[in-house]
């Protein structure tokens, strides 16, 4: 049960209760189909995924770091995907409580942002990230990383690059899922494996990819991402309440590993 202690600080007279099952309403399929879904609230941050995983087992977060990656891509779609992946790396460094790594990743985020023409807006974010990292403000850094991601996306929209927004989101989800599935395969437990059930989320990102222009959709990397997401949606469609086996987790890990390799590669996917 979630504690309500914090509410006492509101100095108000709240009405706190539990919504009982006997008063329950039920949504129709039509209502659920028409529900609002947006990138900014319907897609969880990598930080949410890592928080769920961290409750089930002790994770060596610094062991999840990647080696230095290029920041000199010329393809805008690839830059957007890598930017998302880097932001997920930032959340990993926050989990590891590694201020220097946070600063290094923040610097790489600025470089990729500059390549997309959004560096001016990001400059103040970069300074904030450095400052919060210096002072070990880990919770604040989580918020700042998400705000940085939203700043990038907001800038993309104002620069008529709104089609790249979903690629930033996708890059972050792929990198986050790569880390989480890798950790679960190494040290399997059912509770941890349950976090991987996200068919609606993958479906949402796939649907957003289908809305981008045919020109962008035909780019080899984007085409490859889109094609492989269909398979990944099936891989993360476990029955509710049932944990995937270690072999099922391994399959998801292999699938997102392949995507991540393509995202990082200087060569177009074959």
């Amino acid at each position: 049960m979630i504690r309500l202690v914090a509410l006492a600080m509101l100095a108000l007279i709240p009405v706190v209760s539990t919504a009982k099952a006997e008063e329950a309403r039920r949504l129709s399929a039509d209502q659920m189909t028409k529900a609002v879904g947006t990138d900014s609230i319907s897609v969880p941050t990598p930080g949410e995924l890592f928080a769920a995983l961290a409750k089930t087992e002790k994770i060596n977060w610094s062991a999840q770091y990647r080696g230095p990656m290029p920041t000199t891509y010329s393809n805008r779609a690839q830059i957007a995907l890598n930017l998302g992946g880097l932001i997920a790396d930032g959340f990993i460094a926050v989990e590891a409580k590694d201020g220097q790594q946070v600063k290094n990743i923040g610097s790489d985020i600025m470089k990729l942002g500059k390549a997309l023409g959004v560096s001016e807006q990001l400059l103040s974010r970069g300074n904030s990230i450095n400052e919060f990292a210096e002072h070990n403000e880990w919770d604040t850094l989580q918020a700042e990383l998400e705000a940085t991601e939203n700043e990038v996306k907001s800038s993309m929209q104002s620069h008529a690059d709104q089609e790249l927004v979903i690629l930033v989101t996708l890059g972050g989800w792929i990198r986050g899922t790569q880390v989480v599935t890798g950790a679960i395969v190494k040290n399997y437990n059912e509770s941890a494996a349950k976090v991987l059930r996200q068919p609606a989320l993958v479906h949402f990102m796939q649907a957003k990819l289908n809305e981008i222009s045919p020109e962008l959709r035909q780019e080899p990397l984007v085409k490859s991402m889109s094609g492989q997401l269909n398979g990944i949606e099936k891989l993360v469609s476990f029955p509710g309440g049932k944990a995937p086996s270690v072999e099922e987790v391994r399959k998801v890990n292999e699938a997102v590993d392949k995507l991540m390799t393509e995202i990082e590669s200087k060569e177009p996917p074959k």
Binding site: A35, V36, S42, F204
Partner: peptide
């Protein structure tokens, strides 16, 4: 009413 779709993780607590 307004209905918003979200994706949540088992193990986390939400407000």
């Amino acid at each position: 009413h307004t209905l918003i779709a979200l994706n949540l993780y088992a193990g986390n607590q939400y407000w």
